[in-house]
């Protein structure tokens, strides 16, 4: 049963950024998408308010990437519509950044880490003199401060993925789409980056849609968790996460509410994964 949920509740991360009656940043309305006879997405509706962090979970192949691509304007729905601030998304747009799942292909192999971040600055005509400082700051934030002159081929998968995140942040987007960005990271780096991303989202007021396979990651990051069901992809349940912000790797994860949510989600998706 597809659930349409009009959220009027303000997320914790966006204190004061929008009045309660504000229009959603992103509105997904009865979206379907088919490749030929095959329906990939079958009727998804979802509103996302400014500053909110939505996590999407679901089994492999259920259409998470496809949904993100529609939000990025890289794919058009077969029916229904996707709107950004009330205007239909007709194509890619600088204010919606996407971190691709296949990080190896999304980076320019002939540019160093600094050069790859610079591309986003060049695209938005940021003055040449200002670029080095911005690049340095972003790369430091994302933990690549000592690797600015490395080529992607000289970096590990996790480093490449972080580089992609840095480039997206350089875009200064209103909406940040992340497709399993931390899949290639070890647990410690992963937690550090979760906090880094949450901090960035809180300070910039960006809206985030975050795809992950990791239930705990979804709970830790999200204001709401959307469980997608496969064949065709549709919204199964939307779970509200009422955990205080800023979140803390130890305290939040020990919170009884966190454990309860983990249990709830686990039971929910168990059936989709047999």
């Amino acid at each position: 049963m597809p659930v349409t949920q009009l959220s009027t509740r303000l997320p914790h991360g966006a204190a004061g950024s929008a009045p309660a009656a504000s229009q959603p940043r992103i509105r997904i309305r009865d979206v379907t998408l088919s490749y030929g006879p095959l329906q990939i997405i079958g009727g998804v509706s979802l509103d996302i308010v400014p500053g909110e962090t939505i996590c999407i979970i679901g089994p492999s192949g259920c259409g998470k990437t496809t949904l993100l691509r529609m939000l990025a304007g890289l794919a058009q729905p077969t029916s229904g519509s996707v709107e950004l601030d009330g205007a239909v998304i007709g194509g890619p747009n600088r204010s919606v950044a996407i971190v691709f799942q296949d990080y190896g292909k999304a980076l320019l192999p002939w540019r160093t880490a600094a050069g790859n971040v610079s591309l986003a600055l060049e695209a938005r005509a940021c003055p040449r003199a200002e670029r080095p400082a911005i690049i340095r700051e972003l790369l430091e934030k994302i933990g690549l401060g000592r690797h600015t002159e490395k080529y992607p081929a000289e970096m590990s998968g996790g480093m490449q993925q972080r580089l992609q995140i840095a480039r997206c942040l350089a875009q200064e987007p209103k909406v940040l789409l992340m497709d399993e960005p931390f899949g290639a990271l070890d647990a410690m780096t992963r937690q550090a980056l979760q906090d880094e991303v949450l901090g960035l989202v809180a300070t910039t007021g960006a809206t985030m849609v975050f795809v992950t396979h990791d239930l705990e990651e979804a709970i830790y990051l999200g204001d709401r968790i959307v469980c997608l069901q496969p064949n065709p992809g549709r919204v199964g349940r939307i779970v509200d996460v009422r955990l205080a912000r800023p979140r803390d790797q130890l305290l939040t994860r020990e919170d009884p509410e966190f454990l309860r949510l983990r249990r709830e989600l686990y039971d929910l998706i168990k059936d989709d994964h047999q």
């Binding site: 304007g73 890289l74 194509g91 600088r94 919606v96 875009q171």
Partner: peptide, 8 residues
Amino acid sequence: EVSAVLGL
């Protein structure tokens, strides 16, 4: 796609 999203 990257170039389109970045607005090059």
